[in-house]
């Protein structure tokens, strides 16, 4: 079935094979008299052109599903965060630490998005939270329809927190609302302070920016203030928390931020 328009259900079409013949033995023959002859064969080889008006806005379909996801979250009082970043920024490590810290007070669920493998979902399960892995194959982002499908497989308890770890990519995930309450961008100090200027859309659409790997600051040419200044040129309301998921530095600020959203 077509996932976009819902058409083409299995069994709704019939295949006719013009080369398929039936030979049956029979004891009788059919002879028919014809009052006319076919002595002027002609061919129908002309085609007719037809315009099919569709008007299908692919992006708006995502927004509609995202709205339904959001309503589902509100109905169950589930707080949903969409974590976006480039690959290797430390999203999964931040999540592991977050689960360890908050799991005693809140039920936490995770939807993992990667092109391939179950590596991240296994890490999250080990940290103590139920996780569903979505492998997008050649897809470069999660969309609202994928989240809807994942939600149908999770029996999310009311009052819980859901983290969606998006595919590592600073471009496409910015375009797709998943129905989350807040979008959290995780940047790392190894990425360079010019990222907000190069990838403005994801900075524009995120609410909080976690600057991770602060333990590497002495070894890299990254000016945190310059990064924040660039990000604020794009999104002046953006909040920032600098952390090291490895050493634990600053993570309390992140945990408190989550709790302040509940």
């Amino acid at each position: 079935m077509c996932e976009t328009c819902g058409c083409g259900k299995p069994g709704e079409f019939v295949i006719y094979d013009p080369n398929h013949t039936h030979n049956h033995d029979s004891d009788y023959t059919h002879e028919h008299d014809h009052g006319h002859t076919h002595d002027h064969p002609h061919e129908h080889n002309h085609s007719h052109k037809k315009i099919i008006d569709l008007d299908i806005d692919i992006l708006s379909q995502n927004n509609m599903t995202a709205g339904l996801n959001r309503r589902f979250f509100e109905g169950r009082k589930v707080l949903c965060f969409n974590l976006v970043s480039s690959p290797g920024s430390g999203k999964t490590t931040v999540l592991e630490k977050t689960i360890s810290q908050l799991i005693s007070s809140r039920k936490i669920y995770v939807i993992e998005g990667d092109q391939q493998t179950l590596i991240d979902a296994n890490r999250i399960e080990k940290a103590g939270a139920p996780a569903i892995q979505i492998n997008t194959g050649s897809g470069c982002h999660l969309d609202a329809k994928m989240i809807d499908a994942a939600l149908k497989k999770m029996d999310i308890e009311a009052g819980s927190v859901l983290f969606i770890e998006n595919v590592g990519n600073l471009v496409c995930p910015a375009m797709f609302d998943l129905g989350e309450h807040k979008r959290v961008l995780i940047a790392s100090v190894t990425e360079g302070e010019d990222k907000p200027l190069k990838y403005p859309k994801i900075f524009e659409t995120s609410h909080l920016c976690i600057i991770n790997k602060s333990d590497l600051l002495p070894y890299v040419d990254f000016r945190t203030e310059e990064f924040m200044k660039n990000a604020r040129l794009i999104n002046h309301q953006m909040e920032f928390i600098t952390v090291s998921a490895k050493t634990g530095e600053g993570l309390n600020l992140w945990f408190n931020w989550i709790l302040s959203q509940i």
């Binding site: 085609s47 037809k50 008006d53 569709l54 008007d55 806005d57 692919i58 992006l59 708006s60």
Partner: peptide
């Protein structure tokens, strides 16, 4: 606008 819309198809009918 903000849309990305499949507006129409021109098909040939036999």
């Amino acid at each position: 606008g903000t849309e990305f819309r499949v507006k129409s198809l021109l098909i040939e009918e036999e």
